[in-house]
């Protein structure tokens, strides 16, 4: 028995190694979870429905060009897959440690809380990337059936989607650190991403006539916009009534630099705030 005490000698692995250990086992836990398979099923079901609709109805909006295909398929759906993955894997990543008491397992060890936080965040990123990867692979598979090659813009869109996923996970981890109840953190994150952000964006842009640069979902428009040729202008004015005599609506389109800045800032700020909250939280 003394052998362990002697060899460990009160030393602990580096913070980076601890991040790796936490990531490895949390990822194993995620991949064996029911929610991982539910999320995978959702991504596959969406893909199957799209495959059927596009194959059967052959909509011109999808099949006009390769870019219109990827814009219609990937550009419209990817953000929802990302948000759902973020909620599924990040929504209770930290709050679950308090609610399920698994935090008692890790926290009293000589491990930095930041190592736990980053390790869990990375495992959520990998699990979500697998889901997004499956959806992207089915998209490309269908795309190659109709068109001979994959446009380079899709590669960029994929990259932007991954950045967006990082920001969404930063955000979900922040809310997960804020609440001790898993259901509360999941609910708040879901409401924000699926309803609140879109509604705020709509009102701010159309009624206050202000560019909604402070909304994460606005920044995420670059995922779909990059697949449009030409890239949509920063602002455009549309008329609500068919005759053109009614009230007008101002449409804002985020540029790529703006979108990347919004996504980057959201990621940095929310991830840092989440970490600060987690560091200060007590197990009582």
């Amino acid at each position: 028995m003394d052998e362990t005490r002697i060899v460990s000698g009160n030393k602990v692995p580096s913070s980076l190694a601890q991040v790796g250990i936490t990531m490895k086992y949390t990822l194993l836990d995620y991949i064996r979870s029911r929610r991982f398979y539910i999320m995978l099923t959702i991504a596959i079901v969406i893909s199957v429905i799209l495959t059927f609709v596009v194959g059967y109805y052959r909509p011109a909006s999808f099949l006009a060009t390769d870019l219109s295909f990827y814009s219609g398929w990937w550009g419209n759906i990817a953000t929802y897959v990302i948000v759902l993955s973020g909620i599924f894997f990040g929504g209770d990543a930290i709050s679950g440690e308090f609610q399920n008491k698994t935090g008692y397992f890790g926290i009293p060890n000589p491990i930095r809380r930041s190592s736990i936080y980053i390790g869990k965040w990375l495992s959520a990123l990998i699990a979500s990337t697998i889901i997004l990867g499956v959806f992207a692979a089915i998209t490309v598979g269908n795309g190659l059936y109709y068109f001979p090659s994959v446009p380079s813009e899709f590669g960029l869109s994929l990259l932007f989607a991954w950045f967006y996923l990082m920001a969404v996970l930063g955000f979900t981890f922040f809310f997960s650190s804020l609440f001790k109840s898993s259901s509360m953190s999941i609910l708040v994150t879901a409401i924000l991403f699926l309803f609140a952000f879109n509604i705020i964006q709509l009102f701010v842009a159309n009624f206050a006539q202000v560019e909604p640069w402070f909304i994460l979902t606005y920044g995420a428009q670059i995922i779909g916009n990059i697949l449009k040729v030409p890239y949509p202008p920063p602002t455009s004015v549309g008329n609500i009534s068919p005759g053109g005599n009614g009230p007008t609506l101002t449409m804002y389109n985020v540029t790529v630099p703006e979108g990347l800045a919004i996504i980057g800032l959201y990621f940095i700020i929310t991830a840092a705030l989440g970490l600060v909250l987690f560091e200060r939280k007590e197990f009582t």
């Binding site: 362990t4 060899v7 460990s8 692995p13 250990i21 194993l28 397992f105 491990i111």
Partner: peptide, 28 residues
């Protein structure tokens, strides 16, 4: 009140915890 990670095996849970200390793999 301590709860282990339910979806990890007994061995994996112990490895997870043990790896956080500087214990060589053989000894662990």
């Amino acid at each position: 009140k301590m709860i282990m990670y339910n979806r990890l095996t007994a061995r994996e849970n112990l490895w997870f915890f043990g790896s956080l200390f500087n214990i060589p793999k053989k000894v662990l």
